[in-house]
Nucleic acid binder design. Structure first.
Lengths: 252, 252
DNA sequence: TAGTGGTCTAGACCACAGC
DNA sequence: CTGTGGTCTAGACCACTAT
């Protein structure tokens, strides 16, 4: 039952009570919550109020609703750790790039869909690549799947002049991937910089990644630098409930 | 007006229409949306339906509601870049640690509240620190502010045996911070590992960080390793709309 | 005082899951 | 078929902001 004199909205009281029962494992991971109509009885409020309470927990990502079945405590997802050291030259030479390198060390079957297009650099891309806005860039738009499930979206952009007459402008870049083809042309990759942030997905991303509500995405922008210029900027989007990034460096 | 024959729920149609007007800058960043009652007229649906539509956009973090004033397109927040190279020994020696190092290079006035306590290691902490669950750990719980605004929560845990009779068990650890005191005892920090993920904040975190709805947090777990063992595990929580982490490494 | 968003009710009907 | 969540209505009153 809710306290009508406390000043705290009824739906927040219900949400807090349900949350407490979840964190105390009175409702364990995977367990079903009482139905909305049962909660109406239990707390003495109307169904829209119960739905407001449940939607708070859904936005927090701690429960999921399944139409026709019920509301369930979200079980913790299996976290994949992506170690960035996999981008070493040695690892690149062994296979087709960072994503497949990761697949190889784990048990899953990777697949990738690639679309190649050309566009004019926007301000942000131009800044990262050290070129002028409007300059032509080669865009490799990739959807990566593990066992058929979409797990990552990635969009690479390179100055067109670096990719002309190379397999980078083809869907299949061959062994070693984009980075190997860049090195074929005499460009050496010396340094990587990654910028890591998080945000809520766009509706398109939520659909592509099959994200449940309340799950943010991790947005990674990786810039590959050569001897005298930036060679590639790669924008990656990963579901935050399935991935964790690991970085390691020496203290001095 | 909504299309009642499409099968798409009315509130999603309204949300999609408003979202399109926002991304096309018909409603520019910072601009006020029409009031809910005006939207009721414009789309020919009831107010709860309009509120459902707006709450979709709020969960996506693209609008913010201000009680008594209106609903506004969220302007892009200023992003602070936290470069992890600031953890070099040189930088540590110059000041009191990573957070103050960051403040020094920017214009803001930093302040920190610290609470020290002791507890038994849980499974996760024990695993990171290479100790047994139940072993005593020293916990430094910190709230970091920039110009008074809470910008980061951090909880450090160290094996108690490493901190006994050191300033690490005091609120003020002195020049160079925790890492410098560890090195005073002859422990050298050789390696850092960071695990980066994202999730929706708990209600406590949302309150402490003054997070608006629809803003995730970036969760960083940093482990500092010495010559033969892990010395510290630090769990940090940052608001994703204000921070971005930068990592840099050499390709080979 | 007027306008805004926030909360809440008591229903109704629909769509989906499972027996 | 029953029970579940999903959508929607037409109001009501409250709390906050600004004039």
């Amino acid at each position: 039952m809710v306290d009508r004199t406390s000043g705290v909205p009824a739906f927040r009281q219900v949400a807090a009570d349900l949350r407490a029962k979840i964190t105390s494992e009175q409702y364990a991971p995977g367990a079903q919550l009482p139905s909305e109509r049962e909660l109406v009885e239990a707390y003495g409020v109307s169904r829209p109020t119960i739905r407001d309470a449940v939607s708070v927990l859904r936005a927090e990502g701690i429960v999921v609703a399944e139409h026709g079945k019920g509301v369930f405590v979200r079980p913790p997802a299996a976290i994949h750790r992506l170690a960035r050291s996999r981008l070493s030259k040695e690892a690149r030479d062994r296979n087709q790039g960072a994503f497949l390198a990761d697949a190889a060390t784990r048990g899953f079957t990777p697949s990738t869909s690639v679309k190649v297009r050309f566009e004019e650099a926007d301000d942000r891309t131009a800044e990262y690549l050290g070129i002028e806005p409007g300059d032509e860039v080669t865009v490799r738009d990739r959807v990566m799947r593990a066992n058929g499930l979409v797990v990552q979206l990635a969009v690479s952009r390179l100055p067109r002049e670096l990719t002309r007459d190379t397999a980078i402008e083809q869907v299949d870049t061959g062994a070693g991937g984009t980075y190997a083809r860049l090195e074929d042309t005499g460009r050496t990759i010396l340094r990587f910089v990654e910028h890591v942030g998080a945000r809520m997905p766009t509706p398109e991303e939520a659909a592509a990644l099959q994200l449940r509500s309340g799950v943010p995405v991790v947005a990674v922008t990786r810039v590959a630098h050569g001897e005298d210029r930036a060679l590639e900027v790669n924008d990656m989007v990963l579901p935050a409930d399935r991935y964790e990034l690991s970085y390691e460096w020496l203290a001095d």
